[in-house]
C-alpha cells in the first residue's frame, strides 16, 4: 500500500539552512547536508529545500548544495525557489534533484509548466501554490502570501494539472505559522479535484494535526518546517502515532 509521506522543508540561503534548528547532536545546524542526513536517518520520506537566496550567485551556490545533498542522501528531494527557465531546471536535474518546485514563475507564465513537463516528464514538476482566503474565495498569492493574483486557487490547480504538473504543494497562508492545524477543508476539496499527488503545507503544530490532515483529506503527503527543526515533533514519534491511527506510513 502506498505510504503517506512526511516531508521536512528546509529554507536555504547562500547554500546554508536558515531558521533555528535544534537537533541535539548536530555539529553544524546550518549545513544542509548534515540536516538532510539527520532527517533521512529519522525516517523522513522526502525533503524539500526552498532557496531564498536573492543574489546573482544563487544558481551556482544552489547547484553545489544540490550535488552535496545528492552525494550523501538516499531519499528523494525537491528544490524550489527562483527557478525561472528550463536551464535552471536542467542544472538542478543534472546535480541530482529528483523534482523541482515552481511557484511564481508558473503563475506569471503558465506555459512554463508545459515546457518543463515536456522536457523532463511530469514526475519532475511540482507546482507550489500559496493560497489565501480573501473573504469571498481562495485566491493564489505570490511572494509568501503578500501579493494576491487574479487566479482562484481551485481553477489554477486544475489548470496546472492539465498543463503537466506532477504534484501540487499547497500552502495555506491563512494557516501557515499558526500551528493550529492544516487547512483541511480546502485540502479536501483540492485533493478530490485533482488526480495527481497533493502535499499539504501550512499550520502543522502537533502530531494530531498530521493525523487529522490524512484522515480528513486523504492527501498524499504533509510538509512542515519549524515543528521538525525545533524538535517539537520527532519523526519516529510522528510515524508511530500515524501507524497507531491506521494511517499507512513507511
Amino acid at each position: 500500500m502506498l505510504a503517506k509521506r512526511i516531508i521536512p522543508c528546509l529554507d536555504v540561503k547562500d547554500g546554508r539552512t536558515v531558521k533555528g534548528v535544534n537537533f541535539v547532536d548536530l555539529r553544524d545546524a546550518g549545513d544542509p547536508v548534515e540536516l538532510a542526513w539527520n532527517y533521512s536517518r529519522q525516517g523522513a520520506d522526502e525533503l524539500v529545500f526552498l532557496d531564498i537566496t536573492a543574489t546573482h550567485e544563487r544558481r551556482k551556490t544552489m547547484i553545489e548544495m544540490v550535488k552535496a545533498v545528492a552525494r550523501q542522501i538516499n531519499i528523494p528531494f525537491t528544490i524550489g525557489g527562483g527557478i525561472m527557465e528550463i536551464a535552471d531546471a536542467d542544472a538542478l536535474l543534472n546535480a541530482g534533484a529528483d523534482k523541482i518546485s515552481i511557484n511564481s514563475a508558473a503563475v506569471r507564465n503558465p506555459g512554463f509548466i508545459d515546457e518543463l513537463a515536456k522536457a523532463f516528464g511530469v514526475q519532475f514538476v511540482v507546482v507550489a501554490v500559496d493560497t489565501r482566503y480573501d473573504g469571498n474565495a481562495n485566491i493564489v498569492h505570490l511572494n509568501g502570501g503578500r501579493i494576491p493574483t487574479e487566479k482562484e486557487t481551485l481553477d489554477w490547480i486544475t489548470e496546472a494539472e492539465s498543463r503537466g504538473a506532477g504534484e501540487i504543494l499547497l500552502t495555506s497562508m491563512d494557516h501557515d505559522g499558526t500551528k493550529a492545524g492544516f487547512d483541511n477543508n480546502l485540502l479536501k476539496i483540492v485533493n478530490d479535484v485533482v488526480n495527481i499527488p497533493v502535499i499539504a503545507s501550512g499550520g502543522a503544530g502537533s502530531v494530531q494535526h498530521f493525523v487529522d490532515v490524512f484522515q480528513k483529506t486523504n492527501v498524499d503527503a504533509a510538509l512542515a518546517a519549524s515543528v521538525f527543526h525545533y524538535g517539537q515533533i520527532l519523526i519516529p514519534d510522528l510515524k508511530l502515532a500515524l501507524k497507531n491511527q491506521n494511517i499507512n506510513v513507511r
Binding site: 500500500m1 502506498l2 520520506d45 511530469v122 506532477g166 485533482v194 495527481i196 499527488p197 498524499d220 503527503a221
Partner: peptide, 15 residues
C-alpha cells in the same frame, strides 16, 4: 488505469 482515489504518477514509498 483511471481509478478513483488512485493518483497517477504512482509517487512515493510502496511495499
Amino acid at each position: 488505469k483511471d481509478e478513483p482515489g488512485f493518483k497517477v504518477p504512482h509517487t512515493g514509498w510502496n511495499n
